[in-house]
Design a protein around this nucleic acid. Sequence first.
DNA 1: TTGTACGCGTTATCAG
DNA 2: CTGATAACGCGTACAA
Lengths: 340, 340
Amino acid sequence: MKDVASLAGVSPATVSRVLNGVANVDEALAERVRDAARQLDYRANGVARSLRLQRTDVWALIISDIENPFFTSVARGVEDIAQREGFSVILCNTDGNPEKEARYLDVAEREQVSGVVISPNRSGSDISRLMAASIPIVAVDRHLDQPVDTVVVDSEHGAEEATRHLFEQGWNRPACVTGPTATETAEQRLEGYRRAWRAHRGRPLVSLVKHTDYNAETARTAVASLLRQANPPDSFFVANSLMALGALEEFRERGVVPGRDVGLIAFDDAPWARFVDPPLSVVAQPAYDMGCRAGELLLERVRARGAVRPAETIVLETSLVPRASSRRSAPTKRGRSRPR
Amino acid sequence: MKDVASLAGVSPATVSRVLNGVANVDEALAERVRDAARQLDYRANGVARSLRLQRTDVWALIISDIENPFFTSVARGVEDIAQREGFSVILCNTDGNPEKEARYLDVAEREQVSGVVISPNRSGSDISRLMAASIPIVAVDRHLDQPVDTVVVDSEHGAEEATRHLFEQGWNRPACVTGPTATETAEQRLEGYRRAWRAHRGRPLVSLVKHTDYNAETARTAVASLLRQANPPDSFFVANSLMALGALEEFRERGVVPGRDVGLIAFDDAPWARFVDPPLSVVAQPAYDMGCRAGELLLERVRARGAVRPAETIVLETSLVPRASSRRSAPTKRGRSRPR
DNA sequence: TTGTACGCGTTATCAG
DNA sequence: CTGATAACGCGTACAA
């Protein structure tokens, strides 16, 4: 900066003023400064700037699994907003590990990020330090036990819709493979499933419900054990797309054909869902949009430094995407005669 | 820091020394300082620290598509190394857009990151400013036209192996659907395909080669047009996993069954590849490992501030993962009798 | 309108 | 072994 100043024959203060477009600077001087800056290819030192300004242009995005397509879509949403508004994003991947999460929360504080978007592992995640430092926080996908801005989907309703869809397709004994006990999303999806049961068949059967991790392997085991029962289910509602992969594998192994011998619908869409055989029926979440909304909420707080509007919760709707895997009738002939 | 100092009855300098474990400090004093710090729940200001130290503990990771599983695996690798060594990672998603890339390169400089890992959009990406600022750079997946550390896979060999596998399975006219013209990876994969042809059948046929984008839709169109030809291919080598989805869709539409009526093998594995029907044969890239290696290379440079070892290129091997989609014989009976 | 001087929170140097 | 002090690069109050 000093170099630019002396090359332009002005003081560093004037350089700062010109480059930040603040105060009135004589246009001739300003032009000289811009010239000099260009000539020297000058870039302000962001670290010094942050120290002086007591704020940074950085957000922390703390998510539990960067390899889960749902979260990458959320990330893109947050990132697009951030970038549009001139913020950079520090990506932090917690692997669902509370310790890693705590460590990253620490980094966020030390690095004085101006805001945090987090998909909490457990509602009890300790954000007290961040709150004390009055760093705005937005929770995505799940709630925190503190009153902070939150973006979620109506899991219960989506799950109910999915299960109702199974009934409407003519399935009579849908099972539910949901996420780990005490996980907010898992419980909500289970509750939606139960509601659909109550609406169509009366009391849901506990024997048709399994809790597993949100992955293919454990879900497959659960599906297998459900199918081994004396009174097995005729269809499945599974709580995320990875679980659907596990179910599909088990079905294939047993030679039962989804969309004909068994019904299957999953919560959460995935890029490959329409390509598997049969195409997977899902309840889609607006993941990218959730990220955008979270970004916008954070933006509000970051801009309005101190102002206290009460914490807000945005609940987005899921959408039913029926494809072939939930059908009951024999699949229609798919193979068309070849054009030539 | 001043608060901690006065609470402990020492100078700020001593606080710094204790908390950084530098120099010898009287154990009694040190203990008092740690107590005070704990009591006040003190965290050093990372921004001020960076300014004073003239370095940050931040890496920038610039990738072209956060929604591509290949890159997320790379990202995890980089991130794991970074985290192990006490660095944070700024994730930057360029969307394959050279302007966004340039903008992020700028951010990296302004924020004084201590290192950059980049999967360049084009080899000509302008990293001159970073080099001038002597910020270490590592290229992943593709080369830059500057001499920097690089981590790639042997695409050509992997592609050759994949194509040879098709020949060995009894297919005689494998086609190649590769990435955009002039993309390094696309050209290499095409070249590997050609080598296998020359080894088995002589001159590769240009009529069996298509360039498309690295996605499902354009690849599907290419597959369709290849199949419409007078002398259609009997099998396909496609240059990434998304393309395979497009191919599978087209096959299904036409009623041709992969692993029986047509052969299919893809470059690049994906989490869902073994779940589609039939399971997809692939040439797997060690994506996570690539990220780790890139992280390690960067670490070396970051640690050895000035030392100049020549730029190094690490070439990792792919591995053939034959599954059912590349078979020629009729698939073995998959449906086993149910256990009960 | 412009320049001078201070301070943001650290850490390294130097004197004691 | 410890404390005072300067400096990292910038933005801004204040004086000119």
